[in-house]
């Protein structure tokens, strides 16, 4: 191997060029990574498929839970019986892991209808309806328990089943995916 000489005592214009070139390459490299990372995000077709969906409530009997999908995510629409509503309202909020009154989880004058995301907030399994200690939901994967308001009451789930954006178009029809009934 031939010896190469690189040692120079003073900083030179060549040193400046080295640093400038290196900096440009670093910035360029980082910029190039951006589109690749972004391509992993939900794409335009997936976002477009998230248009609001209407759900007709009239065929849902008292006590029945219906599964619908919005943006590929499972949503439970539950027609609660008076006992289930009472059980959800008569709860000492201080005892809850994620304290939330039942009234904050339903629309005014529509306490009968509970609309929640259908994936357990622990690791995403689908909890089984009308089961568990509080007769709300029970997740078979890791044992999380939810009450008739979809609030976590036991197991590893950290938070309540979230409420998707929805609104009542009429007393028997909701639209999931928007907060205003202007469909």
């Amino acid at each position: 191997m031939a010896e190469t000489t690189t040692h120079v005592a003073e900083p030179t214009r060549r040193d400046f060029l080295f640093i400038a070139t290196g900096a440009a390459a670093a910035v360029g490299g980082a910029t190039l990574v951006w589109p690749f990372i972004q391509s992993l995000a939900p794409d335009a077709a997936t976002v477009a498929a998230g248009a609001p969906v209407e759900v007709d409530l009239s065929p849902i009997a008292a006590g029945q839970i219906v599964k619908v999908f919005w943006r590929g995510k499972l949503i439970f629409v539950r027609n609660r019986t008076p006992e289930e509503i009472k059980a959800a309202e008569d709860v000492n909020l201080a005892s809850l892991r994620d304290p939330q009154p039942d009234s904050a989880r339903v629309k005014p004058d529509h306490a009968q209808w509970l609309v929640v995301y259908g994936n357990c907030t622990h690791l995403g399994c689908v909890p089984l309806g009308n089961q568990g200690e509080y007769n709300g939901w029970f997740c078979p994967c890791h044992g999380s328990v939810f009450d008739t308001s979809g609030r976590v009451r036991g197991g590893p789930a950290p938070i309540n089943l979230p409420i998707p954006p929805y609104a009542f178009v009429s007393d028997t029809k909701i639209i999931i995916g928007q907060e205003e009934a202007t469909a």
Partner: peptide
């Protein structure tokens, strides 16, 4: 679903990371 949701446990960035893993709002074709 369960394994990708492990990352949702991370505070603040968890949900974003999971949607980048999924390429959607749930496990699906992407």
């Amino acid at each position: 679903t369960v394994i990708t949701n492990l990352f949702s446990a991370l505070p603040v960035v968890g949900e974003t990371i999971v949607s980048f893993l999924w390429g959607g709002y749930s496990v699906g074709n992407p």
